[in-house]
Design a protein around this nucleic acid. Sequence first.
DNA 1: CTGTTAGCGCGTTCAG
DNA 2: CTGAACGCGCTAACAG
Lengths: 361, 361
Amino acid sequence: MAVTMAEVAARAGVSVMTVSYAFSRPERVSATTRDLVHRTAQEMGYTGPDPGARALRTRRAGAIGVVLGEHLTYAFEDPQATRFLAGVAAVCVEAGLGLTLIPVTGGPGDADRVREAAVDGYVVWTTADDDPVLEVIGRRPAVVAGGPAVPGAGLVTIDDRAAARAVGLAVFRGARSPAVLSFPMGRDRIPRLVSGPDPESALFPVTRLRLAGYRDAITELGGDWATVRVLVLARNDAAEARAAASAIEDADAVAAMSDQIALALPDWQDGRAAGRRATDAGNTSEPTGASHAVSRRISGWDDTAAAAVAGLTTVSQSLRDQGKACARQVVSGVVGVEQARWRLVERASTAGPADEVSADG
Amino acid sequence: MAVTMAEVAARAGVSVMTVSYAFSRPERVSATTRDLVHRTAQEMGYTGPDPGARALRTRRAGAIGVVLGEHLTYAFEDPQATRFLAGVAAVCVEAGLGLTLIPVTGGPGDADRVREAAVDGYVVWTTADDDPVLEVIGRRPAVVAGGPAVPGAGLVTIDDRAAARAVGLAVFRGARSPAVLSFPMGRDRIPRLVSGPDPESALFPVTRLRLAGYRDAITELGGDWATVRVLVLARNDAAEARAAASAIEDADAVAAMSDQIALALPDWQDGRAAGRRATDAGNTSEPTGASHAVSRRISGWDDTAAAAVAGLTTVSQSLRDQGKACARQVVSGVVGVEQARWRLVERASTAGPADEVSADG
DNA sequence: CTGTTAGCGCGTTCAG
DNA sequence: CTGAACGCGCTAACAG
């Protein structure tokens, strides 16, 4: 069914190589021959070299593989992962490469799927230390975004611990009963409420480092980490956060590991809660939209558009740029450790003391 | 550098085929030999058959290609495209296939990139009739989501015209000065304000059919399409819609082709505009969040979460299901025309007559 | 500028 | 259950 190069060559009365060149290196063939080849190819319904065969011969798959973590479906629901992917895509376009999303389910077949993917290199979205996928990416140039660090692979990440400390200092100042709204600790994703957990017990580096940074802040502020409640979620999911939030409803300062879960707290009620409205203390031009009855301090992470509108103090980082950085490393073939930028964005949600509530008791 | 099957075979003292079987069809090899093979493979750093070579031999790339339209970066910023992709991904996971996003720039190299991608079939996100990519997808099983229809390719779409008519009847009822907030007409994406354009002049089928449906509604309501202003945007983008909205500020009914651009209209101001608050007239359980000063009727499209919160009348469709349908067709190899479901969701934004405003003049 | 010679790494024959 | 040939469709490297 498929027309082959050899058939075109035979029909055109030239050698196979001439056909190959006519398609892949047109400048190396005389205009006459090239036209002849293209014409007969068209007649025969041959549209060009088979990508699989070419890939075998050139040892280049022409695509970079992206592992977005447990089930692609979640990945697309996470705006940060999506933004990251857009950065990877931008570089792929420049480089003329495809972008293969490698589906991962959390099951045992994941590593095989990753290994068997026909790609020139890997970009791995942040995962846990014990993710089996990490053992398999070493065969080709690979970069992990957000950690963990893998020997031989690149790493693009912000200093999560320093950023967590910075935002922790903003949100925990003066708190008597601080709490953390946390990403999962390990791949089992067991939700739970714990007090002052050892950050080292978290297998997701992002979770581990942020917990450590929050602890740094608490300690610097003269608090006792052991008394800090940490509400661990199964996922970075607003609905889950909303449902679980009552467990820390009496906390007077909450540091959340994402804007999404921070904004899922009941404090953000549209004009319903008592108290004065938060005003935007940041430097963005977006107007204040949702309102926060300032009865306690809250911080998020990522500086999404919603955080700006809500006046949520947060950590700003460009996942898009990190995506580009990862892709560039893989494309160039030289991988290494690359620190990405972050900055603290202080807004109204950590602006005033908790006792400024105007109405009610 | 790369360890080959033959080398493993030699070292293990078996034939190449035994190694092949040991990896690809373990049950056809005795347990003893299999273990021997796996062990020596491990020692030599051989991790399994090369995907490229296997693909060439089996004539299956092991991935399906997705063309998400002009520059992937935009695609990830469109929540509908993202949701669609999640559906495609879900089927890929089931089928054990990769998902290759084929980067497209809008430039002349697009068709080649699509043709040269090593994939088993294509899923194409809705595009214009004259998109060169469409001429190239015929070589493998292909499905277009949202049109245009391509001979030999599958098509998964809702009846955009009927849906537009339905939502048009809701939003345009009683309007004296109706307007449409439209997707682009063609790939040139020239923004403009026109009156009663011929729907046929739109090369994007989605735009064309929705305009035709809106026209149907206007006509049925006794109006004159020729007087209806259509504000054509370059993209489905809230910022652009916000900037351009003043051109139709005096319209008393606006049908928008997406929730995003509908909610970018200045009518949705959080508690700032005069007038009563819209209340959710739909059947969702989400509470009313953003508020709409009901001074004119507005409709959107897609039924996003924001629409539910805002009380925006809209057309509900599951892009995720459509993504799954497309992928299933490609995976199965039998493509065809498949109608997807939609339904009108009437909410407060088209609930009351425009003169029910309570305050001001 | 064009043709010839060799494979890329594997899986599908078909014997044994 | 295992082995030996053969070729998937193409291109690198050289020759002419």
